[in-house]
Protein backbone atom coordinates (compact mmCIF):
# COMPACT_ATOMS: atom_id res chain seq x y z
CA UNK A 1 0.00 0.00 0.00
CA UNK A 2 2.83 2.30 0.94
CA UNK A 3 4.40 1.44 -2.39
CA UNK A 4 1.20 2.32 -4.27
CA UNK A 5 0.95 5.69 -2.53
CA UNK A 6 4.59 6.44 -3.23
CA UNK A 7 4.09 5.53 -6.86
CA UNK A 8 1.01 7.79 -7.07
CA UNK A 9 2.97 10.68 -5.62
CA UNK A 10 5.74 10.09 -8.12
CA UNK A 11 3.23 10.12 -10.98
CA UNK A 12 1.76 13.40 -9.74
CA UNK A 13 5.25 14.92 -9.52
CA UNK A 14 6.05 13.90 -13.11
CA UNK A 15 2.78 15.44 -14.28
CA UNK A 16 3.45 18.68 -12.46
CA UNK A 17 6.92 18.79 -13.97
CA UNK A 18 5.52 18.04 -17.41
CA UNK A 19 3.06 20.88 -17.00
CA UNK A 20 5.89 23.18 -15.98
CA UNK A 21 8.01 22.19 -18.97
CA UNK A 22 5.11 22.66 -21.37
CA UNK A 23 4.17 25.95 -19.77
CA UNK A 24 7.69 27.29 -20.00
CA UNK A 25 8.01 26.18 -23.62
CA UNK A 26 4.65 27.40 -24.82
CA UNK A 27 3.51 30.22 -22.60
CA UNK A 28 6.41 31.88 -20.94
CA UNK A 29 8.74 32.36 -23.85
CA UNK A 30 8.77 35.69 -25.70
CA UNK A 31 7.04 36.26 -29.01
CA UNK A 32 3.68 35.05 -27.80
CA UNK A 33 0.97 34.14 -30.20
CA UNK A 34 -1.31 36.97 -29.08
CA UNK A 35 1.08 39.60 -30.32
CA UNK A 36 1.50 37.85 -33.61
CA UNK A 37 -2.22 37.82 -34.09
CA UNK A 38 -3.29 41.23 -32.87
CA UNK A 39 -0.35 43.35 -33.87
CA UNK A 40 -1.03 42.41 -37.43
CA UNK A 41 -1.53 45.86 -39.08
CA UNK A 42 -4.43 44.55 -41.17
CA UNK A 43 -6.55 44.31 -38.04
CA UNK A 44 -5.96 48.00 -37.38
CA UNK A 45 -6.13 47.67 -33.61
CA UNK A 46 -4.87 50.53 -31.49
CA UNK A 47 -2.25 49.86 -28.77
CA UNK A 48 -4.97 50.44 -26.17
CA UNK A 49 -7.20 47.84 -27.71
CA UNK A 50 -4.31 45.40 -27.83
CA UNK A 51 -3.59 46.04 -24.19
CA UNK A 52 -7.23 45.44 -23.35
CA UNK A 53 -7.19 42.18 -25.27
CA UNK A 54 -4.04 41.12 -23.47
CA UNK A 55 -5.79 41.75 -20.16
CA UNK A 56 -8.75 39.74 -21.37
CA UNK A 57 -6.45 36.81 -22.20
CA UNK A 58 -4.55 37.24 -18.95
CA UNK A 59 -1.29 37.89 -20.77
CA UNK A 60 -0.37 41.00 -18.81
CA UNK A 61 -0.17 39.32 -15.43
CA UNK A 62 3.26 38.28 -14.15
CA UNK A 63 4.38 34.79 -15.20
CA UNK A 64 4.20 33.10 -11.78
CA UNK A 65 0.60 34.21 -11.43
CA UNK A 66 -0.15 33.04 -14.98
CA UNK A 67 1.47 29.74 -14.08
CA UNK A 68 -0.61 29.25 -10.95
CA UNK A 69 -3.69 30.42 -12.80
CA UNK A 70 -3.24 27.95 -15.67
CA UNK A 71 -2.33 25.16 -13.28
CA UNK A 72 -5.48 25.69 -11.24
CA UNK A 73 -7.45 25.96 -14.46
CA UNK A 74 -6.08 22.66 -15.69
CA UNK A 75 -6.80 20.97 -12.40
CA UNK A 76 -10.38 22.19 -12.66
CA UNK A 77 -10.66 21.05 -16.28
CA UNK A 78 -10.42 24.55 -17.76
CA UNK A 79 -7.88 24.63 -20.58
CA UNK A 80 -8.31 28.28 -21.57
CA UNK A 81 -9.41 29.64 -24.93
CA UNK A 82 -8.15 29.09 -28.44
CA UNK A 83 -6.39 32.22 -29.66
CA UNK A 84 -7.58 31.82 -33.21
CA UNK A 85 -11.26 31.13 -32.68
CA UNK A 86 -11.79 32.19 -29.10
CA UNK A 87 -13.62 28.93 -28.45
CA UNK A 88 -12.86 27.16 -25.16
CA UNK A 89 -10.15 24.57 -25.77
CA UNK A 90 -12.16 22.11 -23.73
CA UNK A 91 -15.01 22.36 -26.20
CA UNK A 92 -12.71 21.93 -29.20
CA UNK A 93 -11.16 18.86 -27.67
CA UNK A 94 -14.48 17.34 -26.64
CA UNK A 95 -15.56 17.46 -30.29
CA UNK A 96 -12.56 15.56 -31.62
CA UNK A 97 -11.46 13.20 -28.86
CA UNK A 98 -13.99 10.40 -29.61
CA UNK A 99 -12.89 10.15 -33.24
CA UNK A 100 -9.23 9.93 -32.33
CA UNK A 101 -9.94 7.51 -29.52
CA UNK A 102 -11.66 5.17 -31.98
CA UNK A 103 -8.82 5.44 -34.49
CA UNK A 104 -6.12 5.01 -31.86
CA UNK A 105 -7.67 2.03 -30.12
CA UNK A 106 -8.34 0.22 -33.38
CA UNK A 107 -4.80 1.06 -34.50
CA UNK A 108 -3.40 -0.25 -31.25
CA UNK A 109 -5.34 -3.50 -31.42
CA UNK A 110 -4.27 -3.98 -35.02
CA UNK A 111 -0.66 -3.26 -34.07
CA UNK A 112 -0.71 -5.83 -31.27
CA UNK A 113 -2.22 -8.44 -33.58
CA UNK A 114 0.36 -7.63 -36.24
CA UNK A 115 3.26 -7.78 -33.78
CA UNK A 116 2.14 -11.03 -32.18
CA UNK A 117 1.51 -12.50 -35.61
CA UNK A 118 4.97 -11.59 -36.82
CA UNK A 119 6.56 -12.97 -33.67
CA UNK A 120 4.74 -16.27 -33.99
CA UNK A 121 5.59 -16.58 -37.68
CA UNK A 122 9.23 -15.77 -36.92
CA UNK A 123 9.39 -18.63 -34.41
CA UNK A 124 7.08 -21.21 -35.92
CA UNK A 125 8.88 -24.55 -35.96
CA UNK A 126 7.68 -25.38 -39.46
CA UNK A 127 8.77 -22.07 -40.93
CA UNK A 128 12.45 -22.04 -39.95
CA UNK A 129 13.50 -21.49 -43.52
CA UNK A 130 11.61 -18.26 -44.04
CA UNK A 131 11.75 -17.07 -40.42
CA UNK A 132 14.38 -14.51 -41.39
CA UNK A 133 11.87 -12.77 -43.62
CA UNK A 134 9.54 -12.22 -40.67
CA UNK A 135 12.42 -11.23 -38.47
CA UNK A 136 13.36 -8.50 -40.95
CA UNK A 137 9.80 -7.19 -41.19
CA UNK A 138 9.85 -5.01 -38.04
CA UNK A 139 13.06 -3.28 -39.15
CA UNK A 140 11.34 -2.45 -42.42
CA UNK A 141 8.25 -1.21 -40.59
CA UNK A 142 10.18 1.19 -38.34
CA UNK A 143 11.88 2.69 -41.37
CA UNK A 144 8.64 3.63 -43.09
CA UNK A 145 7.42 7.23 -42.68
CA UNK A 146 3.81 7.13 -41.50
CA UNK A 147 2.65 9.86 -43.86
CA UNK A 148 4.21 8.13 -46.83
CA UNK A 149 2.68 4.81 -45.88
CA UNK A 150 -0.74 6.46 -45.76
CA UNK A 151 -0.27 8.00 -49.19
CA UNK A 152 0.98 4.75 -50.70
CA UNK A 153 -1.96 2.86 -49.21
CA UNK A 154 -4.36 5.40 -50.71
CA UNK A 155 -2.64 5.08 -54.04
CA UNK A 156 -2.77 1.30 -54.03
CA UNK A 157 -6.17 0.61 -52.50
CA UNK A 158 -8.11 3.65 -53.67
CA UNK A 159 -6.60 4.53 -57.01
CA UNK A 160 -5.00 1.38 -58.36
CA UNK A 161 -7.29 -1.31 -56.98
CA UNK A 162 -10.27 1.00 -56.43
CA UNK A 163 -11.28 -1.03 -53.37
CA UNK A 164 -11.92 1.88 -51.06
CA UNK A 165 -13.46 5.10 -52.32
CA UNK A 166 -11.52 8.29 -51.59
CA UNK A 167 -14.53 10.52 -51.54
CA UNK A 168 -17.16 9.86 -48.88
CA UNK A 169 -16.21 6.38 -47.78
CA UNK A 170 -18.51 4.64 -45.33
CA UNK A 171 -17.61 4.84 -41.64
CA UNK A 172 -16.02 1.40 -41.64
CA UNK A 173 -14.36 1.69 -45.05
CA UNK A 174 -13.03 5.08 -44.07
CA UNK A 175 -11.29 3.59 -41.07
CA UNK A 176 -9.50 0.69 -42.74
CA UNK A 177 -6.60 2.58 -44.29
CA UNK A 178 -6.01 5.01 -41.40
CA UNK A 179 -5.99 2.14 -38.89
CA UNK A 180 -3.56 0.20 -41.03
CA UNK A 181 -1.36 3.27 -41.49
CA UNK A 182 -1.28 3.81 -37.75
CA UNK A 183 -0.81 0.14 -36.87
CA UNK A 184 2.24 -0.63 -39.00
CA UNK A 185 4.74 1.71 -37.34
CA UNK A 186 3.35 0.95 -33.86
CA UNK A 187 3.66 -2.78 -34.40
CA UNK A 188 7.32 -2.55 -35.33
CA UNK A 189 8.91 -1.79 -31.94
CA UNK A 190 6.46 -4.16 -30.29
CA UNK A 191 7.38 -6.98 -32.65
CA UNK A 192 11.07 -6.22 -32.20
CA UNK A 193 10.90 -6.48 -28.44
CA UNK A 194 8.74 -9.61 -28.61
CA UNK A 195 11.07 -11.37 -31.04
CA UNK A 196 14.09 -10.44 -28.99
CA UNK A 197 12.61 -11.55 -25.71
CA UNK A 198 11.44 -14.84 -27.20
CA UNK A 199 15.03 -15.39 -28.33
CA UNK A 200 16.31 -14.49 -24.87
CA UNK A 201 13.89 -16.77 -23.08
CA UNK A 202 14.66 -19.65 -25.45
CA UNK A 203 18.26 -19.37 -24.26
CA UNK A 204 17.37 -19.73 -20.58
CA UNK A 205 18.40 -22.95 -18.86
CA UNK A 206 14.83 -23.78 -17.86
CA UNK A 207 13.90 -24.14 -21.52
CA UNK A 208 16.64 -26.74 -21.90
CA UNK A 209 15.16 -28.58 -18.92
CA UNK A 210 11.69 -28.62 -20.45
CA UNK A 211 13.24 -29.85 -23.69
CA UNK A 212 15.01 -32.61 -21.80
CA UNK A 213 11.63 -33.62 -20.40
CA UNK A 214 10.45 -34.40 -23.91
CA UNK A 215 8.62 -31.21 -24.86
CA UNK A 216 8.35 -30.27 -28.52
CA UNK A 217 9.03 -26.78 -29.83
CA UNK A 218 5.37 -25.80 -29.91
CA UNK A 219 4.86 -26.89 -26.31
CA UNK A 220 7.94 -24.91 -25.26
CA UNK A 221 6.80 -21.78 -27.05
CA UNK A 222 3.19 -21.78 -25.94
CA UNK A 223 3.47 -23.20 -22.44
CA UNK A 224 6.80 -21.82 -21.26
CA UNK A 225 8.21 -19.06 -23.40
CA UNK A 226 5.11 -17.01 -24.20
CA UNK A 227 4.35 -15.68 -20.73
CA UNK A 228 7.97 -14.90 -19.95
CA UNK A 229 8.50 -13.17 -23.27
CA UNK A 230 5.40 -11.00 -23.10
CA UNK A 231 6.41 -9.39 -19.81
CA UNK A 232 9.03 -6.97 -21.20
CA UNK A 233 6.53 -5.75 -23.80
CA UNK A 234 4.32 -4.32 -21.09
CA UNK A 235 6.95 -1.81 -20.12
CA UNK A 236 6.61 -0.36 -23.61
CA UNK A 237 2.95 0.50 -23.22
CA UNK A 238 3.59 4.15 -22.36
CA UNK A 239 6.03 4.72 -25.18
CA UNK A 240 3.64 3.08 -27.63
CA UNK A 241 0.91 5.45 -26.53
CA UNK A 242 3.19 8.37 -27.38
CA UNK A 243 3.78 6.84 -30.78
CA UNK A 244 0.02 6.50 -31.23
CA UNK A 245 -0.48 10.23 -30.58
CA UNK A 246 2.29 11.16 -33.00
CA UNK A 247 0.90 8.69 -35.51
CA UNK A 248 -2.58 10.16 -35.11
CA UNK A 249 -1.33 13.66 -35.92
CA UNK A 250 0.14 12.43 -39.20
CA UNK A 251 -2.57 9.91 -40.08
CA UNK A 252 -5.41 12.37 -39.51
CA UNK A 253 -3.61 14.94 -41.60
CA UNK A 254 -3.02 12.53 -44.48
CA UNK A 255 -6.55 11.18 -44.49
CA UNK A 256 -8.16 14.51 -43.67
CA UNK A 257 -9.97 13.13 -40.62
CA UNK A 258 -11.11 15.41 -37.85
CA UNK A 259 -9.39 14.51 -34.59
CA UNK A 260 -6.98 15.49 -31.90
CA UNK A 261 -4.07 15.07 -34.29
CA UNK A 262 -5.60 17.31 -36.91
CA UNK A 263 -6.45 19.88 -34.24
CA UNK A 264 -2.85 19.80 -33.06
CA UNK A 265 -1.47 20.16 -36.55
CA UNK A 266 -3.65 23.21 -37.16
CA UNK A 267 -2.81 24.67 -33.78
CA UNK A 268 0.90 24.53 -34.59
CA UNK A 269 0.40 26.10 -38.00
CA UNK A 270 -1.57 28.92 -36.40
CA UNK A 271 0.62 29.18 -33.33
CA UNK A 272 -2.41 28.51 -31.18
CA UNK A 273 -0.49 27.63 -28.03
CA UNK A 274 -3.34 26.99 -25.56
CA UNK A 275 -4.56 24.11 -27.72
CA UNK A 276 -1.09 22.60 -27.96
CA UNK A 277 -0.56 23.03 -24.22
CA UNK A 278 -3.79 21.18 -23.51
CA UNK A 279 -2.96 18.35 -25.93
CA UNK A 280 0.54 17.98 -24.52
CA UNK A 281 -0.77 17.80 -20.99
CA UNK A 282 -3.56 15.38 -21.79
CA UNK A 283 -1.09 13.06 -23.49
CA UNK A 284 1.37 13.33 -20.62
CA UNK A 285 -1.41 12.48 -18.21
CA UNK A 286 -2.45 9.42 -20.18
CA UNK A 287 1.21 8.38 -20.48
CA UNK A 288 1.75 8.67 -16.74
CA UNK A 289 -1.48 6.82 -15.96
CA UNK A 290 -0.55 3.99 -18.35
CA UNK A 291 2.87 3.64 -16.79
CA UNK A 292 1.35 3.73 -13.34
CA UNK A 293 -1.08 0.96 -14.20
CA UNK A 294 1.67 -1.14 -15.78
CA UNK A 295 3.91 -0.68 -12.75
CA UNK A 296 1.18 -1.63 -10.33
CA UNK A 297 0.10 -4.56 -12.45
CA UNK A 298 3.55 -5.92 -13.19
CA UNK A 299 4.09 -7.70 -9.87
CA UNK A 300 0.82 -9.51 -10.46
CA UNK A 301 2.06 -10.75 -13.82
CA UNK A 302 5.59 -11.54 -12.69
CA UNK A 303 5.66 -13.28 -9.31
CA UNK A 304 9.36 -12.52 -8.85
CA UNK A 305 8.76 -8.77 -8.72
CA UNK A 306 6.19 -8.99 -5.95
CA UNK A 307 8.84 -10.47 -3.73
CA UNK A 308 11.52 -8.01 -4.73
CA UNK A 309 9.30 -5.03 -4.01
CA UNK A 310 8.49 -6.43 -0.61
CA UNK A 311 12.19 -6.39 0.12
CA UNK A 312 12.81 -10.10 0.40
CA UNK A 313 15.60 -9.86 -2.13
CA UNK A 314 18.91 -11.23 -1.02
CA UNK A 315 21.18 -8.62 0.40
CA UNK A 316 24.39 -10.50 0.33
CA UNK A 317 26.96 -9.76 -2.30
CA UNK A 318 28.32 -13.23 -1.96
CA UNK A 319 28.97 -14.69 -5.33
CA UNK A 320 28.02 -18.12 -6.45
CA UNK A 321 30.88 -20.08 -7.85
CA UNK A 322 30.87 -20.18 -11.60
CA UNK A 323 30.48 -23.79 -12.52
CA UNK A 324 32.95 -24.83 -15.16
Amino acid sequence: MKYVLGRLGQAAAVLLAAFTVAFVLLQAMPGDALMIKFENPELGLSPDQIAALRVAYGADTPLPIQYVHSLLGFLGGDFGYSIQSGTPVKQLLAEVVPGTLLLASLGFVAAVLLAVGITILANLPGLRRIADVFRALPSLFVAVPVFWLGIVLIQVFSFQLRLIPVVNPGPVEGLILPVLTLAVPISAPLAQILIRSVDDVLGYPFVAVVRARGAGPWWILSKNVARNAVLPAFTMAGVLFGELIGGAVVTETVFGRAGVGRLTEQAVSQQDTPILLAVVLLSATVFVVINLVVDLLYPVLDPRLGARKRGIARISRERKVVAV
Binding site: P205, F206, V209, V210, A212, N224, L231, D302, P303
Partner: peptide, 14 residues
Protein backbone atom coordinates in the same frame (compact mmCIF):
# COMPACT_ATOMS: atom_id res chain seq x y z
CA UNK B 1 17.93 -34.91 -16.86
CA UNK B 2 19.14 -32.96 -13.84
CA UNK B 3 20.53 -29.61 -14.96
CA UNK B 4 23.56 -27.67 -13.87
CA UNK B 5 22.28 -24.50 -12.28
CA UNK B 6 19.07 -25.01 -10.30
CA UNK B 7 18.59 -21.27 -9.96
CA UNK B 8 17.73 -20.69 -13.60
CA UNK B 9 16.37 -24.08 -14.48
CA UNK B 10 12.78 -23.63 -13.34
CA UNK B 11 10.30 -21.48 -15.23
CA UNK B 12 10.17 -18.36 -13.03
CA UNK B 13 6.49 -17.64 -13.66
CA UNK B 14 5.31 -21.21 -13.05
Amino acid sequence: WIPQDPNNSLNPVK
